[in-house]
Simulated assay, not measured.
Amino acid sequence: MCSGLLPRTGTEYVMKKNAHFKADEADTRLGKFKGLEVRIGTIVDDEWDEPMGPTPMPDPTGLRSWDHKLLSRYQPSYMPYCQVCCLCTFGKCDLSGDKRGACGLDIKAQQARIVLAAANIGCAAHLAHARHLVDHLIEEFGPRTALIQGPGTEIHAPVSRLVTGMRPRTLEDAAIIVGYCETQLAHTLSATHTGQEGSWLDFESKVLHAGMIDQVGMEIADLVQISTM
Rank of each mutant, 00 (worst) to 15 (best):
67 D>I: 00
99 K>R: 15
88 C>Y: 02
87 L>T: 13
97 G>R: 08
84 V>F: 01
88 C>I: 06
88 C>K: 06
80 P>A: 04
89 T>W: 01
93 C>A: 06
81 Y>H: 12
97 G>C: 09
85 C>D: 13
78 Y>E: 07
95 L>M: 00
89 T>K: 13
86 C>G: 05
75 Q>Y: 08
74 Y>N: 09
84 V>S: 00
99 K>P: 11
78 Y>H: 14
80 P>E: 01
103 C>W: 09
68 H>Q: 12
89 T>A: 13
85 C>Q: 03
85 C>Y: 02
72 S>D: 12
99 K>V: 09
74 Y>R: 10
66 W>G: 03
74 Y>F: 13
69 K>H: 07
66 W>N: 10
99 K>Y: 11
91 G>K: 07
81 Y>N: 09
89 T>N: 13
100 R>S: 04
90 F>E: 14
78 Y>M: 10
74 Y>T: 06
88 C>S: 12
68 H>F: 12
73 R>A: 05
85 C>F: 00
74 Y>M: 02
79 M>I: 04
69 K>Q: 09
88 C>V: 01
96 S>T: 04
74 Y>S: 08
87 L>W: 05
103 C>H: 11
80 P>N: 01
75 Q>T: 13
67 D>G: 03
79 M>K: 11
77 S>A: 09
97 G>N: 09
69 K>W: 08
99 K>T: 15
70 L>S: 09
92 K>W: 13
89 T>S: 13
88 C>E: 06
101 G>W: 03
91 G>S: 02
67 D>H: 15
99 K>C: 11
80 P>R: 00
66 W>L: 12
102 A>G: 01
68 H>R: 14
102 A>C: 08
68 H>C: 03
81 Y>K: 14
84 V>W: 00
82 C>I: 15
104 G>L: 10
80 P>M: 06
100 R>L: 04
85 C>N: 05
97 G>P: 11
78 Y>P: 02
102 A>L: 01
93 C>W: 03
74 Y>Q: 07
83 Q>G: 00
